[in-house]
Design a protein around this nucleic acid. Structure first.
Lengths: 227, 227
DNA sequence: GGTTAAACTTGAACATGTTCAATAATGATG
DNA sequence: CATCATTATTGAACATGTTCAAGTTTAACC
């Protein structure tokens, strides 16, 4: 199992002889896109309805209408397939969360905006969310794991942005290392999020308001300090 | 795979007819203990030398000198076997960490004592530590997962103890909910620990001093507050 | 010792993620 | 269109975690 985290095929259309290689959709490309979408849809439905462990790759392949082996030329392995779904959603959420920063808002409200967007997503797709969070926290190989790290860093940058705004508005004092402070706040968010999702049974929807309230309280401990 | 998290056998010696059931070692019990120890030793050696994924349960069984099926009457599954090893160590470490609390020490030093003991353990067995941390953070079923949660709570209680001492000595102001503050500090520890262990290649020993320094800095952000 | 029931052990059988050699589809070139 | 090289698809074969019905060992009781 010397997994080097790469997909085998996936080459650029053609190295030499690029006569009309500009915008020809081509049967090949559109077929591939179609298959990828079918695979994603099938995986999503099955993961959500049966859970990650109880869904077999054979089921996914059948429902997507592709051969078993084909799955593994679209994703490195079963877990990476889950990441693919999760990243698509997280990407959107992170984008939205960052766009909502308001220079006139208070720090706590901007943080609530960033983390709240994520909480809302996790609440709206609790099953998938739990799966993604569980599987993603530790596995670092594969294209999707890499993509996940990039998205996460963007969220941390948004937190740093919120801190910068709070400093600019005079709400908090100038800090030595905003990026580090953002990292600490993000750490609290991560652990709170996990605890929130783990708090209720695997298939019940978590209580968004209650979760956010607890998170806010935890963040305030850090913002206010213990002294 | 309707895993209910229980071992099948494992009954009390004998419900009825307890004539001399007080202190007879009995072939049965000592055999079982012996086997458990052989299994633990085999698993530890193999996990450390080859990693978790690349060690097969068949290898473990062979090296322990038991049948394949026997493994699964000593631990629910492969992962639980890893937890068994990890918990044995973590239990000791948590005990030691809690005993080191010093009423006359400053908060930062008491926290360094608690978390430092853990960092030292993770540094001394980096391979096993990484595995345990990776696998344990999310899996909640099985006897060992339960035991892990108990140990973790004990560590959080120690942090709360350190906070109580700091309040008693006047270092920090009285707080509304010490247990919650402890939880926040522990959250920072958790994320820092993971980042520290992930920072270097899978088989290199992490730098203890550097990790602790970063953790201390993160904790200080929270203790001091951002204002 | 002999009998019996409970507890323990075992590996063949099973389920499922993953690989890979063979096959088919595609599209560039003549 | 015919040919050919490249790329995509496929499922049989493999590897390995887990189960379980059958066999073995233990020890309580006579």
């Amino acid at each position: 199992m010397t997994d080097r985290g790469e997909l085998k095929t996936q080459k650029a259309p053609h190295p030499a002889s690029t006569r009309r290689s500009q915008a020809a959709p081509g049967r090949r490309q559109s077929n591939k896109l179609d298959k990828l979408n079918r695979i994603k849809a099938a995986a999503r439905q099955l993961f959500v309805s049966q859970g990650f462990d109880d869904t077999t790759v054979r089921e996914i392949a059948t429902r997507a209408g592709v051969g078993l082996g084909t799955l593994f030329s679209y994703s490195l392995n079963k877990r990476d397939l889950l990441f693919l779904l999760g990243n698509d959603s997280l990407d959107e959420v992170a984008e939205k969360a960052g766009a909502g920063l308001d220079p006139k808002a208070r720090l706590a409200d901007n943080l609530r905006g960033i983390f709240g967007a994520h909480y809302a997503f996790f609440a709206s797709e609790p099953v998938l969310a739990r799966l993604v969070l569980r599987e993603m926290t530790f596995y670092d190989s594969g294209a999707q794991a890499q993509r996940f790290r990039v998205i996460r860093q963007r969220v941390i940058d948004h937190v740093a942005g919120a801190l910068a705004l709070a400093i600019a508005s005079g709400e908090i004092a100038g800090r030595e290392d905003i990026a580090f402070d953002a990292w600490v706040l993000f750490a609290i968010y991560q652990v709170e999020l996990r605890a929130w999702l783990a708090a209720c049974a695997p298939d019940c929807a978590p209580d968004l308001a209650m979760g956010l309230q607890r998170l806010e309280r935890a963040l305030k401990v850090c913002i206010g300090g213990l002294r």
